[in-house]
């Protein structure tokens, strides 16, 4: 048996647990009669012990915290929502085009009739909507293509589209001015673009209220 090839090869097989019974016997018989191989084998085993005794190295104290800080922060779904909120103009522009495609302009142009969201207890005089003194409107009121006179109370928001709130008495019509109160927000929408913006804001509120 040649020391450098066969015997050393068997030593490594032994160290890797790959040795057969017969090979193990061959090796131990050789080691008994060969000092050089015995030394070699001893040195190999000692080397492994040395490697295993190598100093344990510890990570820096703040390692885990640093890694956690560097991780990408949120899930994609949350990121998209954030993007919309961070870029309202771009989002508005995108929604604007969707509105355009859905023919919003034509709807706006064709539709010039007076529209009132609530009719009960309200007086309609031509293109003017009047909330009488003793009437309380429970909830939001929308008036489109008409003016509004509030003498009573509105418990909600008022939106005026293409119209105005009459605050000064109209000549020849007696005391026709708003002296009542609105317990909410009063919004004027007079222009096409404002109408679009109003629509977008409404859409946003419904999207992000989810």
């Amino acid at each position: 048996m040649k020391c450098n090839n066969e015997a050393v090869e068997l030593m490594h097989k032994y160290l890797d647990g790959d040795i057969t019974k017969e090979q193990e016997q061959t090796l131990s018989q050789h080691l008994e009669s060969c000092d050089a191989c015995q030394r070699h084998f001893h040195e190999l085993k000692r080397t492994i012990t040395f490697i295993q005794s190598a100093e344990q190295i510890k990570a820096p104290a703040n390692f885990t915290a640093t890694v956690m800080e560097k991780l990408p922060t949120e899930k994609k779904r949350i990121k998209y929502t954030r993007w919309f909120k961070a870029h309202p103009m771009l989002t508005a522009a995108a929604i604007f085009f969707v509105f355009m495609l859905s023919g919003m302009f034509s709807v706006w142009n064709q539709d010039s009739e007076l529209v009132v969201s609530k009719q009960e207890d309200l007086v309609i005089n031509g293109d003017t909507v009047i909330v009488p003194q003793d009437v309380t409107v429970d909830g939001d009121l929308l008036v489109k293509n008409g003016n509004l006179i509030i003498n009573g109370t509105i418990d909600g928001n008022v939106t005026l589209i293409n119209g105005k709130l009459i605050e000064e008495p109209i000549e020849g019509e007696g005391l026709m001015a708003s002296v009542g109160e609105v317990n909410g927000e009063l919004k004027h929408v007079d222009q096409v673009f404002e109408w679009i913006w109003y629509s977008i804001k409404q859409l946003f509120q419904s999207v992000f209220a989810l």
Binding site: I57, K58, A59, F63, V67, L71
Partner: peptide, 20 residues
């Protein structure tokens, strides 16, 4: 499942081994 904080235990457990 998306629980980022659960990764902290993983880092903490393996940090010395991987750093070494």
């Amino acid at each position: 499942k998306g629980d980022q904080s659960a990764f902290e235990d993983v880092v903490s457990f393996f940090q010395n081994k991987i750093y070494q």
